[in-house]
Design a protein around this nucleic acid. Structure first.
Lengths: 356, 356
DNA sequence: CTGAAAGCGCTTACAG
DNA sequence: CTGAAAGCGCTTACAG
């Protein structure tokens, strides 16, 4: 640890120039003689000079800092992808991220926003951990802000969310493409929650069916709760109906995981006997399943990137209708979807015996 | 967005006092008359005053900022717990975290450290995403730094890691406590990697057995790769040996998950027929399994907290042996461990029939 | 208890 | 192309 960080003055003195000149080479301005630049650069190197951003900030009024605020109670495996995406984009623009985890009540969140503003952030990304409507602290209006994986009822903030409907549609189309017509859908949450992920994915499923000319059959639809247990139970239930599904679309990978256990119990093999598409791309689950699960990826990194990207264009003036952006959920092909079999249902002769 | 942020001068003028006085009330110094304090506070409130940290930083030399550097190639579900723990502790001390994700080569990491220093951070936590030895950028020596979930070969940085040996021991003891004597262990990685998580957990297993007076039987030990497939295969393999295990200790939850599939195929029920303890507490997996998995939690939040806590005590002077701290991995009891059964092996009459 | 002044490390017109 | 000076928003002795 150096005795004392050299300042621009130390460099100026050592190089025999004025501080303004040092500042100019620091900022790579054109109007500096090549010889001077070389000399100053050499001195900076020799003295181990590093600029102090705080001074720059105070002088120019620009902190080159963005705030990243997370409001969540539970840990999700997605949080870090969001931060990674945002951080990567920020770095490209020489910005850095002040990250603050404000789980807790409104007071905590308001305080967090205030802290961020005191730190001089030039924008705040307010990130939810699942797609839902949020009530943001008032102070968020004092600085450019964008909502991620969330939106405000007044739509008074730019917002970026996954395109749930498109995701549901693509998942279903993937199954249709392989000839499936009896496709079950288990929503990732109760529809009464109104959550876009639950309502939207089902809507996409319905649209895809309609486009393909396949009649919607409510006997194939179940309201799940998102967890593995729910997937397990509904799978057994759906397998017991007349003309059972040959394919399943689950609103979460966790439910698909529960389904795999049900299939295993019944000796049904994926994808030979039954095809499955999940949602979320929780790769620790999707990759761990046998066969690995084909699923729809949530665009976390992309949302993080978009948020910073949009912040970079601030200030936006008094635009009364901030963009409400939906990003597609790309399909991640693994091994759980195959062509529909002419003969349907369980195949007893292959089940329960021996190992895979 | 306000026209222009009021400064300490605006407050001083509006309150009819000097800027020094405003500064004093801002910093809650004792030597301010109550009346003055009230007056100034009122004006600050009225004008919506917010201090500018950058100015404070430049004047006092203290940024109240820590850097949080992550080096990782792959996403892990743990990253965010680390950040959360660190951030929570930082907030208690009125510090904030500059988070930067420096996956990539050494140059990227060195640049990241330099950027953090330019921002004036008073310390850096360098966090790996799994327990291993790291080679840190030289510049890290310029500022107080602590290594998380990692260590340097020279042990020249404070370091905090999970106590793998103790974790392995506790997991095994949990199984011993329920009467199990034939306990299989599948390591979470190949021992040739030398990774503490692989070597240490096995060591803990060995110790626990020795303490309990149970002879170590190498027929019960397998080198796994950590993923579900590995757990699935070794489970079938171990179940086929003479005098098969009644309990399994897996070095990862993912392997335990693979094992559950093997058990299901064989009609073995957890924990009635076989007991299981995992490692990592990946709760999206551990909670999703039926029954939910008893496992050892990695102390991510605690490591993050410890790191900031230690940074708060810097500078440390020229201490030649920085602390190398090991934190315990608490057991998370769910439902996968039960008493050993007198009669061992599969119970055909209960297997493969009906649903759970 | 309080005001005026200096100064932290920069950047930015302003002259030359 | 370059130097001297002012000033960003604070804090901190120094006088009183």
């Amino acid at each position: 640890m150096a005795e004392k960080k050299p300042s621009i003055h130390d460099i100026a003195k050592a190089a025999g120039v004025g501080v303004g000149t040092v500042s100019r080479v620091l900022n790579e301005r054109a109007n500096v003689a090549e010889a001077t630049r070389t000399k100053v650069t050499a001195v900076m190197e020799r003295l181990g000079y590093r600029p102090t951003f705080a001074a720059r900030h105070i002088r120019t009024g620009r902190s080159q800092l963005f705030g990243f605020l997370t409001d969540q109670v539970t840990t999700t495996p997605f949080a870090h992808d969001l931060i990674k995406g945002a951080q990567a984009r920020a770095r490209q623009a020489d910005r850095m991220l002040l990250v603050i985890d404000a789980d807790g009540d409104d007071r905590v969140r308001a305080q967090a926003v205030a802290n961020l503003i005191e730190r001089g952030v030039e924008g705040i990304v307010y990130a939810a951990m699942f797609h839902h409507e949020v009530h943001v602290p008032k102070a968020l209006h004092e600085v450019p802000a964008v909502l991620v994986d969330s939106f405000s009822s007044a739509r008074d903030f730019p917002s970026v969310v996954p395109d749930e409907v498109l995701g549901g549609r693509m998942a279903t189309e993937r199954l249709l493409a392989d000839g499936h017509r009896r496709i079950a859908m288990v929503t990732n949450d109760f529809l009464t929650t109104g959550y876009p992920a639950a309502v939207g994915r089902l809507e996409g499923y319905t649209q895809a069916l309609a486009d393909a000319g396949v009649a919607f059959d409510e006997a194939l639809v179940r309201e799940g709760s998102g967890n593995a247990d729910s997937g397990y139970r509904w799978t057994h239930d759906l397998l017991d109906i007349d003309d059972p599904p040959t394919a399943f679309f689950f609103g979460t990978d966790r439910m698909a995981m529960g389904a795999y256990f049900a299939f295993t119990e019944r000796g049904l093999h994926v994808p030979d006997d039954v095809s499955v598409v999940g949602f979320d791309d929780q790769h620790y689950i999707a990759d761990a399943l046998r066969p690995a699960l084909t699923t729809m990826a949530l665009p976390h990194a992309a949302m993080g990137r978009w948020a910073i990207d949009h912040l970079l264009t601030a200030p936006w003036g008094d635009d009364r209708s901030p963009p409400q952006r939906r990003l597609p959920c790309p399909i991640v092909e693994r091994g759980s979807v195959g062509p529909v079999r002419p003969a349907q249902g369980a195949t007893p002769e292959r089940s329960l015996t021996g190992r895979r």
